[in-house]
Design a protein around this nucleic acid. Sequence first.
DNA 1: CCATATACTGAAAGCGTTTTCAAGCAAAGA
DNA 2: TCTTTGCTTGAAAACGCTTTCAGTATATGG
Lengths: 343, 343
Amino acid sequence: MAQIVTIKEVAKRANVSQATVSRVVNQIGNVTPELKLKVDHAIETLNYSPNHAARALVKKQTDSIGIIVHNLHDPFFYDLIKGFEEGARQTSYNVVFCSVLGGDMDSKEKYIRYLSNGVVDAVVLYGSYLADEAVIQYLNNASGMNYVMIENDIRTLNCNKMLIDNVCGAKSAVEYLIGKGHNRIAHIGGNSSKRVTTDRFNGYLDAMRGAGLEVWGNYIQHANTDYHLGYECMKSLMALRERPTAVFCSDDAIASFAVRAALDMGLRVPEDVSVMGFDNQRILPDRYRGPDITSVEQPLYQIGFDSIRVLTEQLKSSKPFEPVRMMYGTSIVEKETVGSLKG
Amino acid sequence: MAQIVTIKEVAKRANVSQATVSRVVNQIGNVTPELKLKVDHAIETLNYSPNHAARALVKKQTDSIGIIVHNLHDPFFYDLIKGFEEGARQTSYNVVFCSVLGGDMDSKEKYIRYLSNGVVDAVVLYGSYLADEAVIQYLNNASGMNYVMIENDIRTLNCNKMLIDNVCGAKSAVEYLIGKGHNRIAHIGGNSSKRVTTDRFNGYLDAMRGAGLEVWGNYIQHANTDYHLGYECMKSLMALRERPTAVFCSDDAIASFAVRAALDMGLRVPEDVSVMGFDNQRILPDRYRGPDITSVEQPLYQIGFDSIRVLTEQLKSSKPFEPVRMMYGTSIVEKETVGSLKG
DNA sequence: CCATATACTGAAAGCGTTTTCAAGCAAAGA
DNA sequence: TCTTTGCTTGAAAACGCTTTCAGTATATGG
């Protein structure tokens, strides 16, 4: 950063006061055409651009919104980022992204503090956060900013929340399988310490019970530490005497390994066994090349877009801050891994 | 943005001057332990964080670096973003990303001006820019910032440049094919108004001539407007009396359509025809599911990483600015679409 | 023609920091 | 005891901008 030309120099050159230059730049108040002309001319010849920091300091607003994403590079975020981008395009605010790698708590804290101290007017948080993290407390209580948390439903926080109805989504997936005539439906969950895993498992249970189907204990598997384990889980499911005709997986990465396991065992998908995933992820790990996985899609694009929109509206509004809580439904994307048992 | 607690309040609470608080916060100069204790205590109880804008204003530096990328969501940037992230992790600077959609010139200009006016100390530009764009002129001449341009070799600009040797990369690809025993090698280029297309075409020519091979006019095709045209180009190549045994494509997207065309014509890849691409793109358009495409990889990770590193070093250095110009070599990634004609 | 309203402009204060400068003070040396 | 030195501290200026306030000039109405 190296500021070259200031408002003062423009004022001197145009033979007016700084106030007048400011008025011209911000198109505020009234300035006679001839003065405006002189100022415009001075701005042009000096190639003046107002200093953002100085402006932010006095106005106490930056006209900017920050987004913090864990692992920005991850193609999983394709639609989310697109939503942010489109939201950014439609707002007059500057939108900036910060990426926090994996479990790097330090930089997570660094970026939240950085953004919330006079760099942006609001932030969007994607990733998992805990209510008692110091920096979240700071953001919530001391920074005076409003912010959006995506996929994090922390009751004690007074912020906007964009949530996905994982229970319902999972339920609809299993109901979809049931609708295709399946009734021996197994489940492979993900890391069971995560909320999303238990939610989706509950959705599975809901659907099974709702349809009056028995839930067998050995139909429930968990790829606890890593989605690669989906392979082993599937193998043991397929080895059961009463082999399930369909498997609902907690996410597409697990599902991709489940499909692989089935194919490796000589089973056909979906003729011999149907597999369903969650997330509708377009890039699967380890160069997956099986059939495209029927899945449950989350409206990530919409969530990204709405995050920016909601913040923009709140910032422009003069009404007192009223946090928004949005629950997003999911939709089933029919692809190639689910077959029908009917007819 | 809503600043709550200022250095003034901390000073009052700790019964010291603002200067002392500043010294404690910045760990500069000497402060007696007891005063430091009082200040630390006041900071903690008030939950004080220094205002970034105010600091930037007086120090004329922001300890931040900005990155502008066209279409941040595009998975093509996977490695580039990873490089940026790792570079960011290793520097003490704050690193922020801005995304510019497609041909949205306005926001391109908006973000460059935004960043370069007291928001960051340096920027990285990925995307295509022209020397005579006003905002590039501003960045180069008036902003006083140093910046990196990736893949843009504009002579008149006094900036850091990170370039990819497309000629060499294409040459090595074709030489690789020749090494596999091919001598009837065709080429499908991309948009011929782009520098990268002509460079890669020239690399093709270099390799052919270097090996003493004739270049047939009807072996040269161009998917000018869209990579989908790779399909048609390939079809006409495959219809030739003297069918080429290998096709070098200007990029992987085109190559993927070329492969499809061959397969659709009942040809086997690579047994009947070899196909080679460029970029080693991990996500191909339109759910490509053919064999993995042998390609030329650009060190995008390295380029991203180096961009941050170079800027960090320059910013920390007291020496006068000396622009860096780096040319990166490419490497061949052997996958499944090239066969050998020998033995 | 005077009083009043209106439009325009500039001086100056202030935003929250850092940093310079001088003052105060204790320790050290003569 | 008196300087000198070095360390610690605070007052105040400055960074570049916006905005208030007051002042001047012009237009409006009676």
